[in-house]
């Protein structure tokens, strides 16, 4: 029981990070029907930006709590801004010129951009893993059990609390933007009928750019969280995390915002529980098998709307 609880906490934390990245995939797919394969690499780039800013500010675990907090806000904002610039530029250079082209064209450039970003970071930052000393230490012990095998404690670290809280807050803000603001309405309108939206005076190109920027900003948050949680990054993390988050988006129903979050959680939990109870080596196999099974029985994903065939 205690072991289960501990894994649940770990799984939710991991799932939150996947969910944050998955939102970027799902929003972009919703609005232009394209899988932005470079999104995972935006996440990777932003974790490097976060690492650079943290190092530049000289934050360490011995920095006071208040100063660490302020510094992390600064890191978060700069990572979000720079990642947004990356997201915007990618869209402007690689996707917008191809908007009238056949469907496969932007997909191919997306893979190209992904390779470009990976190589760019590999050359400028080196191929070795970059470590970061943990900045946020400590945590809470929720319960302990003492038996013949020794002591087992269920713990939630401050870092995990931070990740879960930040994810919930951001999810709420983004859901409100989509549901309540004029920008969100414009995004949903573009999703359904881009031509009609432009005839109502909506600048469709700008709305699409904004969507990329929003996705990139969320990926930047995930990048910082990943860096703080795991403490090691390299130029290739974007690929694995990207594929997982993409799986999460498809699992939840691509195009659906709550679906992306739910898909992220499911993937995170499956991975964690599989590693905990079966074998660590096969955790990815388990996650992807789950995707295959869900798609066979629920092709539109968990929360996606079924595609209605137009006659």
């Amino acid at each position: 029981m205690e072991y289960f609880l501990q894994q649940l906490i770990n799984g939710i934390t991991l799932g939150s990070i996947y969910g944050l990245i998955a939102i970027g995939y799902t929003m972009v797919y919703g609005i232009i029907g394209m899988i932005n394969f470079a999104h995972g690499d935006i996440f990777m780039v932003s974790s490097f930006i976060a690492l650079i800013v943290i190092t530049a500010l000289g934050v360490t675990v011995s920095t006071g709590l208040g100063m660490t907090f302020l510094a992390l806000i600064l890191v978060l904002v700069s990572a979000m801004v720079i990642a947004s610039v990356f997201g915007w530029t990618t869209e402007r250079l690689a996707y917008r010129p191809l908007r009238g082209s056949f469907r496969l064209a932007p997909l191919i450039t997306a893979i190209g951009i992904s390779i470009v970003l990976q190589n760019y970071i590999q050359i400028t930052q080196g191929a070795r893993v970059k470590p970061l000393q943990p900045l946020i230490a400590d945590g809470y012990t929720l319960m302990t059990r003492v038996d013949a095998n020794g002591e087992f404690a269920v713990q939630i670290s401050n870092m995990q609390i931070l990740i879960i809280v930040v994810t919930i807050v951001l999810m709420t803000i983004f859901s409100l933007i989509i549901a309540k603001t004029s920008l969100g309405r414009a995004q949903r309108a573009c999703e359904q009928d881009r031509k009609m939206a432009s005839l109502l005076g909506i600048n469709v190109d700008r709305t699409i750019s904004t969507t990329f920027v929003m996705g990139a900003a969320l990926a930047a948050v995930a990048g910082l969280m990943f860096l703080l949680y795991y403490g090691v990054i390299d130029f290739f993390i974007g690929f694995i995390a990207g594929v997982k988050a993409f799986t999460a988006a498809v699992l939840g129903g691509i195009g659906s915002l709550p679906g992306a979050m739910l898909g992220g959680l499911v993937i995170g939990l499956i991975e964690t529980f599989w590693s905990a109870y079966f074998s660590v080596e096969y955790k990815d196999v388990a996650a992807f098998s789950m995707l295959a099974i869900v798609l066979i029985f629920l092709p539109q994903g968990l929360l996606g709307k079924p595609e209605v065939e137009k006659v």
Binding site: I177, T181, S182, R188, A189, Q192
Partner: peptide, 29 residues
């Protein structure tokens, strides 16, 4: 926009003045 409500359809038509009023969404948030 079939998936949106009648009111929302009419609000999409007023996107531009609302965008300015919300300081391009930042004020809206």
């Amino acid at each position: 926009f079939g998936g949106m409500t009648v009111l929302e359809n009419l609000m999409v038509g007023q996107h531009n003045p609302l965008m300015i009023a919300s300081n391009y969404t930042f004020g809206g948030i």
